[in-house]
Amino acid sequence: MTTTPVTAQTDSTEGVAKFSVRGLDFYYGDFHALTGITIDVAENAVTAFIGPSGCGKSTFLRCLNRMNDLIPGTRIEGRITLDGADIYGPGVDPVDLRRRVGMIFQQPNPFPMSIYDNVAFGPRLHGVKKKEELDGIVEQALVRANLWKEVKDIMGRGGLTLSGGQQQRLCIARVLAVQPDVLLMDEPCSAIDPTSVQKVEDLMAELKSSVTIIIVTHNMQQAARVSDETAFFLQERQGEPAELIEFARTAEIFTSPHDRRTEDYITGRFG
């Protein structure tokens, strides 16, 4: 029986590890939020993080592109490498890291500007000036985000005029326009309609050949549908840090999980 995360992770990752996390602990000031996280996230695959509210999965996700750095008083122990390089190492520019490791949030957050300018924002920031080149980048990003057909004739319209689901795909296009290696998605489908959910799930399947995707989701059917591997996080007792309980192939987690706590959670016995 595999019960420890360390053993679990060695079973699961089949391809090359994009992220390697070893013995990660995370603190919000005095509050010890995560402990002993060791996991290898496979490259060009979809990895799902699941667990009850407050189990630290979003906190952990934000460690992967140093978004937590923006919250005062936070600190980490342990090591996270991206393609073998320590992302918390000296000389790492968090802004550059966040370009490589893009993020999609629960609430779509387009900028108050046109659809075109939303997608062109990142490339312009990185110095792309030629209109032709920008046009190509914008179109390609919108195609990859499954949105191009719906917006190609209304590119000058404000991003905020789109429906919620379209706005979410616009945000995905905005991230894709800067060619990230990794896409972190923090409950990207919680606030959008079912048709858009389907489109986002479809685009995840299409994108994963070129982008490593990590998704936090409360919807276990979604985790089962979209991901290759699943990690289950749990805070067992109030006041104690959350842990990675089990990490394995998604098909295995949803048919024969090794840990009783995983099984109890995914079968709806708690949480």
Binding site: A224, F254, T255, E263, I266
Partner: peptide, 9 residues
Amino acid sequence: QFPVARDLR
């Protein structure tokens, strides 16, 4: 009901 794990089995 989307059974999984031991319920699915």
